[in-house]
Design a protein around this nucleic acid. Structure first.
Lengths: 176, 176
DNA sequence: TATTTACGTCAACTATATTGACATAAATCT
DNA sequence: AGATTTATGTCAATATAGTTGACGTAAATA
């Protein structure tokens, strides 16, 4: 076999150097990959009458219980008015709850209710499943490269913040 | 040095197997990476009064000159009414032109005008630049893995179509 | 006490998508 | 040739997710 499959062909072509044409292909692959990636969750959210905006709130509150409004706005990069609309819906529907901050009572610390936690688990399971399947399909040597690649795609002046977010979420999610 | 950087640490952790927790990290990295990736183009489009929807049309018409409306709808997965709004703007602003199909005169074959082609080049340059920089930062062995990873992230029943699209665009873009 | 901070809210607007109905011209089937 | 299907355009109403700007309130802080 001269060309086992197209993915392998791209790979071998890109090992030495990456041309401008290859980069455009990556642009398109990224577009299609993200489209399908969010599609999984969209179908589940529809059953609850929620959209992607609700998903993002549920996701990040799940990852960092006790998140403040300001911190969430900083992650999502939207205005408080825009967040407030979806957050209000999630609060009223009983998926998220807000407790007054203990150190600073102006802050509203966000937590998922059991119902919200279940939806978060279901959504995470869908999206994790895609990644786990992908990692299974990929040769072992390429697996770590995926996260390195995604991390490198983030604005360099944002990486430290993302790294801190991941580390914080890891400790928050891990210990009881 | 025990831990040169966080990306390498994730890599070594993921080489053997990918856990559920790792997958959630990938979900977040994908979110942040896509957010920053589209941000580049957004800032340029703003100067023209265009949005992401216009970008997608310009991108795919540039990649496949002579694309029909139906083919574009199939790629973008939106309704004709939604496409029509942005397409009309692009036609009126002189970035895209439509010629009647030669074999089937009902079809409107889409092409970029010189002005549209310039914007397409500028947008592509921005997004390619990010990928080229990323590929430069990544160890050579990880470069091909990026496209393999993105391709694997696409719905399996869609991959053939995407592969065909890339092959077609490659030949269309290459020859004069 | 004065000011700043964290957050909520009302209002108007934009961009992008949807569904549904209907129109037209060209291709194709019978 | 007439009937039907196909490719596309268009009008209208609606939904979601975002924006800017202005104003309010309670709590922390200078």
């Amino acid at each position: 076999m001269i060309e086992p499959d197209a993915a392998a062909a791209w790979r071998s072509a890109a090992v030495e150097a990456t041309s401008d044409g290859d980069a455009i292909e990556l642009v398109e692959l990224f577009f299609f990959a993200y489209r399908d990636f969010v599609g999984d969750a969209d179908r589940l959210l529809e059953k609850y009458g929620f959209g992607r905006a609700h998903h993002r709130v549920i996701h990040f509150v799940n990852r960092r219980p006790g998140l403040t409004i300001a911190a969430l706005l900083d992650i999502l990069r939207i205005t408080k008015q825009s967040l407030n609309r979806v957050l209000k819906q999630l609060l009223e529907a009983g998926f998220v709850e807000a407790r007054a901050g203990v150190v600073d009572r102006r802050q509203r610390l966000l937590y998922l209710t059991p119902q919200g936690a279940k939806l978060a688990r279901d959504l995470a399971a869908l999206q994790s499943a895609r990644f786990l399947k992908v990692m299974d399909e990929l040769p072992p040597a390429a697996r770590g490269a995926a996260s390195e690649f995604l991390f490198a795609m983030i604005d360099s002046d944002e990486r430290e913040r993302v790294r801190a977010h991941l580390a914080c979420a890891k400790s928050a999610g891990g210990a009881p």
